[in-house]
């Protein structure tokens, strides 16, 4: 349903302004690949490393970057506007840097409030966005600003043998405790969806009247606004993390980190 809505919106918006579109030498439609990267600043990196070191709950000061791959289609709707659609994919892990409230696991004596191991994160972000080219430029060539709503879909998976909680189980009949591992994190595969608003500035150049080289940066507004919470470690909403909502709570933080600020370099081909 969501996909249908995007396609419909794309067609309608372009039809309105189709007759004014010049494109580059008449070529209006392009497809491209983009690479986004962001420096890991606030516990955004999967290994909890950070480019500025000791940020948030970072354990290491090693420089680290996130990577996102993108496929996009763009259409010069007028001499100033491009209507674009992109799908960005990223694959990362969350190495369980956050602690949960240990008191929430009854019957067990928790050895560590941080789960062992990590869980995998696969994100797919759909964005319908618009590029507005500066006064002196002609879409798709020149400097532009862009904006548009994004839908972040995330799938997380974890392996209980990797991601677990070490605990002592007390045997009342023997009066002894034994080591054990727990994985009370819900289903092994979990899906999450969120929305955001993307803003960006870029510059595109065209070579041989066919190849588009596009570079700039973008931010996700809600991720930026929530930075303060992420830095201080406070959770939005304030509800405590439990093993049951551990993935849901931490993956959102992780997604915000990935999308907060990205530099990008795209290469595209003007088709027709």
């Amino acid at each position: 349903m969501r996909t249908r809505f995007f396609i419909l919106a794309f067609i309608v918006l372009n039809t309105i302004v189709f007759s004014q579109a010049p494109g580059h030498l008449g070529k209006r439609f392009s497809i491209g690949y983009g690479f986004h990267t962001s420096p890991s600043v606030f516990n955004a990196n999967g290994k909890n490393q950070t480019i500025i070191g000791r940020g948030g709950s970072a354990e290491s000061g090693s420089p680290a970057f996130n990577a996102i791959h993108e496929l996009n289609i763009e259409f010069a709707a007028s001499s100033k506007w491009l209507t674009c659609f992109s799908a960005r994919y990223y694959k990362t892990v969350y190495d369980n840097a956050e602690s949960f409230n240990s008191s929430q696991v009854s019957g067990y004596s928790i050895q560590s409030s941080r789960p062992e191991g990590y869980y995998d994160v696969r994100g797919l972000t759909y964005t319908l966005y618009f590029k507005y080219f500066g006064k002196r430029y002609v879409a798709p060539w020149g400097r532009y600003v862009m904006f548009g709503p994004t839908v972040n879909t995330v799938k997380t998976t974890y392996d209980p043998s990797e991601m677990n909680i070490r605990a002592y189980k007390y045997n009342s009949s023997t009066g002894t405790s034994s080591d054990t591992t727990l994985a009370p994190f819900g289903a092994k595969e979990q899906d999450f969806v969120g929305v955001n608003l993307m803003l960006g500035i870029g510059r595109s150049r065209i070579y041989s009247n066919r190849i588009i080289l596009d570079y700039g940066f973008n931010i996700h507004m809600f991720s930026v606004l929530s930075s303060l919470f992420d830095v201080t470690g406070n959770r939005i909403g304030g509800s405590p993390i439990t093993p049951a909502n551990y993935i849901e709570s931490t993956v959102k933080q992780r997604i915000r980190g990935v999308n907060r600020f990205n530099l990008f370099l795209k290469i595209g081909v003007l088709l027709f």
């Binding site: 010049p22 580059h24 030498l25 002609v138 060539w141 020149g142 065209i206 070579y207 009247n209």
Partner: peptide
């Protein structure tokens, strides 16, 4: 650059 010239002339 060529893209600048092409874009402006075409425009």
């Amino acid at each position: 650059s060529k893209d600048l010239i092409n874009a402006k002339v075409y425009q």
